[in-house]
Simulated assay, not measured.
Amino acid sequence: MTTADPQKTTAVAEKDPAGGPAPEDTGPLVELRGAGKSYGNIRALHGVDLAVHPGRVTCVLGDNGAGKSTLIKIISGLHQHTEGEVLVDGTPVRFNTPREALAKGIATVYQDLATVPLMPVWRNFFLGSEMTKGPWPVRRLDIARMKRTADEELRNMGIVLDDLEQPLGTLSGGQRQSVAIARAVYFGARVLILDEPTAALGVKQSGVVLKYIAAARERGLGVIFITHNPHHAYLVGDHFSVLRLGTLELSAARSEVSLEQLTNHMAGGAELDALKHELERAGGVDVEALPGAPDAGEPAGTPSEGTA
């Protein structure tokens, strides 16, 4: 494993070269207490409580317009919260820029990945933070060291590429997401925010991304997994938060909620149940064949469909 490099723009957290178990949880890395955001008279987010612990995956689910993007922007430093508190390592913070959040170890991997498809994999790995050598003012890129470091870091995450010279755009969607995750880990991320990483991927490539989310958790990172898909969330998640119209509808640990209950909350079970009664009164619809809300007495924590 490589050591911290002075070329990096942020401090690199200590890493376990063996990729061993997550460190002992001494408290949340990032915590939101009653956090909210208003844009003039529009309240996009209100009263959200969220805790991100090391070595755990916190899944944030919700439909379009639920407030997921606003939540990402607050934690990543793009927007400031207008109510409540945001704490990092137990200390209240108010980020003015994403760079301030990155300096605290909070990295965000967006859907577009902020990469250049026509550039080689190793160039994308160091994009904006290139290693250089030689005296100023004639310093030049240290290509050999960047290639060597990129290969080592990708392998440490379990990503083996035959040719780092190939354009990033020739990789599959899952591989590109994995490279972005490995890059964030290398440059010191302690909290990794993943914005819908499986949204545009097929089943197999989604599995690749979920594998590396689990790998990031095993390295002790706190992961915030933003997704529309409760099945993907339940495969790797340790805690689930469901947003609805800017408020927190559900906050539960894995042992407290089943996949069926999570799916029901995600789909708006109360509204679907009300619609079922409306259709029943309208007639002409076999409402008995429609799915309803789960029974209130259903035990939580049914076995998962798989493990990370």
Rank of each mutant, 00 (worst) to 15 (best):
T2V: 13
T3W: 13
A18F: 15
P21H: 05
T26D: 12
P28H: 01
E31N: 10
L32E: 06
R33K: 10
Y39S: 03
G40S: 10
G40L: 05
R43T: 15
R43H: 09
A44Q: 08
L45R: 03
H46Q: 13
V48T: 03
P54R: 13
N64Y: 13
K68F: 08
S76G: 12
G77V: 02
H79I: 05
Q80K: 13
T82L: 01
T82N: 02
E83Q: 10
L87I: 09
D89T: 02
F95P: 07
N96C: 01
T97M: 03
P98C: 00
L102R: 15
A103K: 13
I106K: 08
Y110R: 10
Y110I: 02
F125G: 01
S129P: 06
K133L: 11
G134M: 10
G134H: 11
W136R: 12
W136S: 09
V138S: 15
V138D: 14
V138W: 15
D142I: 05
A150D: 05
L164C: 01
P167C: 02
L168D: 06
T170W: 06
S172K: 00
Q177I: 07
A189P: 03
V191S: 05
I193H: 00
L201M: 07
G202S: 00
V203Y: 09
V203R: 05
S206G: 14
G207P: 00
V209P: 07
F225V: 00
I226D: 03
E249R: 12
E256T: 05
E256D: 15
N264Q: 12
L272N: 13
H277E: 14
D295M: 04
A296W: 06
G297M: 08
P299I: 02
G306W: 06
